[in-house]
Design a protein around this nucleic acid. Structure first.
Lengths: 112, 112
DNA sequence: TAAATATTCAACCTTAAGGTTGAATATAAC
DNA sequence: GTTATATTCAACCTTAAGGTTGAATATTTA
């Protein structure tokens, strides 16, 4: 089996979430459910355009989805991409554990 | 209880991990255990200085620790900061779930 | 159809990120 | 003590990120 690399996606998702405004937007979307761009923007000090851009960043890495009805864009959180990151965390931890196990083995052999 | 905000730390950790070279360094450090800067750098195409900078970024948000012995700096992974991010993910998910539960309640009332 | 509303596009500015090279520092080895 | 090794510091370059403003587009309302 060829396991293709998620590197690019993970980078995008992490970077996207590293901005405090975007994390706040995600939180708000989880709380409130589907929301309009203008309504989301009303909670922040920055311009509507800035929020529109943030939303585009989140959309690009699929942390949100957009449903356009007429002139209104309904934005909704989508947490599935977070699982990819969580999976990477898990892998990293297991790599760490694996080394510790090997280390313990070696020490046991040396004890003989 | 006053819950102080982890926002800044979370942003730093996420941003730090959003770079593919830094994630690779972390992985390698988990695999190999404490490593010297020069040895780490030998695996990458970029300059030693670039790696030194990456290590400083990881160090700043405490994803690694450094123990200097003579001229050699021993770098070691430290995954505790990852828990802070995982906690944030968990919170986000529970916020999402909470809304769904409320939504279900409302629908049940409407069913009466 | 004219005016208001919702949103994006485009151009621009400032700052930070990631890279480079060359020099500086500190320690170890000869 | 001179040379080699390990690492950082400093200055610089290029590109991208996040912000702004003003105009464009699309749709709804009056």
């Amino acid at each position: 089996m060829v396991e293709y690399s998620n590197d690019k996606i993970i980078s995008e998702v992490l970077k996207s979430m590293s901005d405090v405004t975007r994390r706040s937007l995600l939180t708000r979307l989880c709380q409130e459910g589907p929301s309009r761009v203008t309504d989301l923007a009303s909670y922040y000090d920055v311009s509507l355009n800035a929020i529109s851009k943030h939303i585009k960043v989140l959309e690009k890495c699929e942390l949100i989805t957009r449903k356009t009805i007429g002139r209104t864009h309904w934005i909704e959180a989508d947490l599935k991409q977070i699982h990819i990151v969580e999976k990477w965390f898990k892998e990293l931890k297991s790599i760490w554990e694996l080394r510790l196990e090997k280390l313990t083995e070696i020490m046991e052999i040396e004890d003989d």
